[in-house]
Simulated assay, not measured.
Amino acid sequence: MSRKTLLRTGPLSQGGAGPYGPVEEPVAGGLTLPAGFGGRVVASSGSKVAGLTWHAAPDGGACFPDGDGWIYVSNSELSLLGGAAAIRFRPDGSVGDAYRILSGTELNRAGGATPWNTWLSCELGHRGRVFECDPYGARAPRPRLAMGRFKHEAAACDPDRRVVYLTEGEPDGCFYRFRPYDWGDLTEGALEVLCGSGRWEPVPWPAALLKGTRHQVRGARRFDRADACHYAGGVCFFTTRGDGALWAYDAQTSAVERLCDGVRAVTAAPSGDLYVTRRTTRIDVITPDREIAPFLTLAGHAGAELTGLAFAPGGDRLYFSARRGSDEGHTFEVTGPFRR
């Protein structure tokens, strides 16, 4: 069933136990999962991972193929000491390496992966930048200033229309898209903002010093601190931190729908299921027929935010982080019979 079903069949419904049945007893690290699933902590802030001290305040993340293995990338939302780091996994799931891929930036919140296997790390600070990073650690990161200077939260690539959607962490923030002149090269392009009419209008001065991007186009649609976003099947799903909502932007019709409340982050599985983190320490699954049900709870981490949702390329492992304050953070891996 197409992911577009999420936009077209009415409101979400509570689906009881969901596609995997009820959650059971806690396992490693306080994870509570359905039968057949397991989990572990792969990294903790301040502790070594393959010789690298794992960063505090882990936030947005993504996975990338690496031969028979894979790589998980994670941002750090710290002032002055933010950036991003990567963990390289061997085919059997063991950790082979860990390393920094971005340093010297700050408040790196969410971000997004590109189809050409780079990581877009977004700065939340005033006049924040988007940095394109190499998850394999071979090339130096590069700022992509044509994507605008504002409080960047997340990025999601739409390969069908060859644009990158961008969210803004302001109470009166906007929803943007960047149209590179050459798909696969984000050095130059046009920044546009979604307006209330559903039209996209060009932002005249993406890097303006005195007038923010969100104030440059009359009629721009406002969102309360737009946060994480993920593109799948013609739809860009994004969250708003201010009111905790999950939204769906239909890229074909420009319709925007509010799907549910109490959501922090979102990603999609190969099956078309959405996985969303709640404001509580819980992850829910939303099926293509619009049923929503608990998938995971995390005990012993009261007050933590769950961030960085990402599936490994094979679709059989889900990664996320639990962060509390600016010091404590743990990055988890969940394995099991995920639907394909």
Rank of each mutant, 00 (worst) to 15 (best):
R241V: 02
R241T: 02
R241E: 03
G242S: 12
G242A: 13
G242P: 11
G242N: 12
D243Q: 13
G244E: 13
A245R: 14
A245I: 06
L246E: 06
L246S: 07
L246W: 06
W247Q: 06
W247H: 08
A248Q: 09
A248S: 11
A248V: 10
A248R: 09
A248L: 10
Y249A: 05
D250M: 14
D250W: 13
A251C: 15
A251T: 15
A251D: 12
Q252V: 08
T253H: 02
T253I: 01
T253S: 03
S254M: 10
S254P: 04
S254V: 08
V256P: 05
V256K: 06
V256C: 09
R258N: 06
L259Y: 03
L259K: 03
L259A: 01
L259D: 01
C260R: 06
C260P: 05
D261Y: 07
G262R: 02
V263I: 11
V263F: 08
R264N: 03
R264A: 00
A265R: 00
A265C: 04
V266A: 04
V266T: 07
T267N: 15
T267E: 14
T267M: 14
T267F: 13
A268H: 02
A269M: 15
P270H: 15
P270C: 15
S271Q: 14
S271F: 14
S271K: 13
S271E: 13
G272D: 13
G272Q: 14
D273I: 13
D273L: 14
L274E: 01
L274P: 00
V276D: 02
T277G: 11
T277A: 12
R278I: 15
R279T: 12
R279G: 13
T280Q: 11
T281F: 01
R282F: 11
R282M: 15
R282I: 11
I283E: 11
I283F: 12
D284N: 10
I286W: 09
I286Q: 05
I286H: 11
T287Y: 03
T287L: 03
T287E: 03
P288L: 08
P288T: 09
P288I: 07
P288K: 05
P288G: 09
D289W: 02
D289M: 01
D289N: 02
R290V: 03
R290A: 05
R290N: 03
E291W: 01
I292G: 08
I292C: 11
A293T: 04
A293L: 05
P294S: 00
F295Q: 02
F295S: 02
L296N: 05
T297L: 12
A299V: 02
A299M: 03
A299R: 04
G300E: 01
H301T: 02
H301W: 04
A302W: 09
A302P: 08
G303W: 08
G303I: 10
A304K: 07
A304W: 06
A304S: 15
A304N: 07
E305D: 07
E305I: 02
E305L: 03
E305Q: 04
E305N: 08
L306T: 06
L306V: 07
T307K: 00
T307H: 01
T307D: 01
G308R: 07
G308S: 08
L309Y: 05
A310I: 13
